[in-house]
């Protein structure tokens, strides 16, 4: 105790020991209180927000809200186009981003030669994870929509989100693979496995829970994004459903619809309808995050 704390000014030796222990317990208490406070701040704000949204939005949440398209009347409006659009985007983004991201992570962690070029690439990927999301949207709009001529369609929106979360998946994948004890890989090699077999059959299964968790968390970040898909061409209203295989159809998305609700002049749209939309999106997000937890628990042992 006395070793850890060093009070600045003291007068008498006896007092020092006493004071020190008292002061240090007080400090300890204060420190712990601060930690508790920090934990509560986030939690309380979240609870207040959630309660506020539930209170505002619950009355608008009926079956019609899911099965109707947009309407000029707040009580008749619905999020059907946005919900099917967001779900289709999720499927497409998962199918495209997962293999590419995991492939890149395996290569960088297990096979890439340790040269300056590899280090350069890794540095770039880490940096790309911090690029503002709207930049990916602008890139996707220019490259996929107009240069490659996909138009402002579902696939363009999905590719914008893929670009956005690829760095996150790669970094998460690399970390999970790195966390696998090297002895597992070495053991497999010693028993005559090729490097590919050792990675595929031994290292990857151990790393999988981490990779999956990282991927799903990245996905749930992606579906909440409005900016990149807005510039990549998401519409705010259409009276048709999106399906993941209709790649060249225009699409709507939940965050874009919520954005539109908030901007409307009528207060019922801004408050109740927008809150109901946010509730639906939160529910989809929670569903995905719990899927991540279930997967992690299932595959940790």
């Amino acid at each position: 105790m006395t070793l850890l704390s060093t009070p600045r000014s003291t007068t008498k030796d006896v007092a020092i020991a006493l004071q020190t222990s008292k002061a240090s317990t007080r400090k300890e208490r204060l420190f712990q209180l601060f930690l508790l406070f920090s934990t509560l701040v986030g939690l309380v704000i979240l609870v207040v927000l959630l309660v506020d949204i539930v209170v505002d939005g619950f009355s608008s949440l009926d079956l019609g809200f899911f099965t109707d398209y947009t309407s000029r009347r707040p009580e008749d409006t619905g999020i059907r186009a946005g919900l099917t659009g967001t779900l289709s985007l999720m499927v497409l983004v998962a199918l495209i981003a997962f293999p590419i991201g995991v492939g890149s992570a395996i290569y960088l962690e297990s096979f890439a030669p340790r040269t300056w070029f590899t280090r350069f690439m890794q540095l770039n990927i880490t940096n790309l994870a911090g690029v503002p999301s709207v930049v990916y949207g602008l890139l996707a709009a220019a490259l996929f929509a107009y240069i490659l001529n996909f138009g402002r369609t579902l696939i363009t929106g999905a590719l914008a989100l893929v670009l956005l979360i690829l760095p996150v998946i790669i970094v998460a994948g690399k970390e999970s693979i790195k966390a696998v004890p090297p002895s597992i890989y070495q053991g497999a090699i010693a028993l005559g496995a090729t490097p590919w077999q050792a990675v595929y059959k031994q290292v990857l299964p151990v790393a999988m829970p981490g990779i999956l968790t990282g991927t799903i968390l990245a996905l749930s970040r992606a579906i909440g994004e409005a900016a990149p898909i807005l510039v990549a061409g998401a519409v705010f209203s259409r009276r048709a459903d999106s399906e993941p295989w209709n790649l060249t159809e225009p699409f709507a998305a939940l965050p874009v619809q919520i954005f539109d609700f908030v901007k409307r002049p009528q207060e019922a749209f801004q408050v109740e309808v927008a809150a109901a939309g946010i509730l639906v999106m939160l529910f989809v997000l929670l569903l995905m995050n719990s899927a991540a937890i279930v997967l992690r628990n299932r595959y940790s042992k």
């Binding site: 099965t67 779900l87 289709s88 499927v91 998962a94 399906e243």
Partner: peptide, 9 residues
């Protein structure tokens, strides 16, 4: 996910 996506169509 695919099923969810198209169940509403």
């Amino acid at each position: 996910l695919l099923l969810t996506a198209c169940s509403g169509s």
